[in-house]
C-alpha cells in the first residue's frame, strides 16, 4: 500500500513539474518546469494564468530540433564543449529562439559564443555566417581599409 502511495505522489509531482510545449513543427514536448521557468515568455503566461500544464503552450517560432538543443544546453548548465558541436545554423537558431523565448542567460551565452567564433575570422567567413553578400566596390573597400589602417596591420594578439 505504502509503495503505491509513494509512486502515486511521485507521478503527481512529475505531472506538476512538467509543461507541455508545442513546437513550430507540431511536436508536443514535455519539458521540466525548472527549464520552462527560464523562458520568460512561457513563465509569465503560466504565472498569470495559472494555466493547466497539460494544454500545450504553442511556440510557433521554435522547431523541435532547436528546443531539444536548448533543453540540453540548460540541462548541461551551458556546457561549452556541447555547444561546440553545433553547426552555424544551429547556433543561429538557438540565438533567435533564446531571444523569442526571452531566455536571458541563454541569449548571453550564445551571443558570446558566436562573438568568440567570429573573432579573428576572415571577412569572407563572416559573410558566409550571416548570409551576407559583399556590396562594396573595390574603391569603397579601399577607402574603409585606409581610414582604419591600424586595424588591418596584425599587431596585437590580445
Amino acid at each position: 500500500m505504502q509503495k503505491t502511495e509513494g509512486e502515486e505522489s511521485k507521478a503527481e509531482n512529475e505531472e506538476v513539474k512538467q509543461v507541455t510545449l508545442m513546437t513550430s513543427d507540431g511536436v508536443k514536448m514535455k519539458v521540466e518546469i525548472s527549464i520552462v521557468y527560464e523562458m520568460e515568455i512561457v513563465r509569465s503566461f503560466i504565472e498569470v494564468n495559472d494555466a493547466d500544464h497539460s494544454v500545450p503552450f504553442p511556440l510557433p517560432n521554435v522547431s523541435s530540433h532547436t528546443l531539444d538543443l536548448i533543453i540540453e544546453l540548460v540541462k548541461n548548465e551551458y556546457d561549452d564543449e556541447f555547444m561546440k558541436t553545433f553547426s552555424h545554423d544551429e547556433l543561429k537558431e538557438v540565438l533567435v529562439a533564446a531571444n523569442y523565448l526571452n531566455m536571458k542567460t541563454l541569449l548571453d551565452f550564445i551571443a558570446t559564443a558566436i562573438a568568440n567564433l567570429l573573432e579573428k575570422k576572415s571577412v569572407e567567413f563572416i559573410r558566409n555566417f550571416f548570409n551576407i553578400v559583399n556590396d562594396f566596390t573595390p574603391e569603397e573597400e579601399a577607402e574603409i581599409r585606409k581610414t582604419n589602417e591600424w586595424v588591418f596591420q596584425d599587431l596585437d594578439e590580445d
Partner: peptide
C-alpha cells in the same frame, strides 16, 4: 537575415579591432 538587434547583441561582444574589420563585410 538575423534581426538587427541580434546582430548588434553579438557585435557588442566583439573587440573593437575585429569590429572595425567587420566594416568590410557589407554596407
Amino acid at each position: 537575415n538575423l534581426p538587427e538587434e541580434l546582430i548588434e547583441n553579438i557585435l557588442f561582444r566583439v573587440p573593437i579591432k575585429y569590429l572595425l574589420q567587420l566594416k568590410l563585410v557589407c554596407k
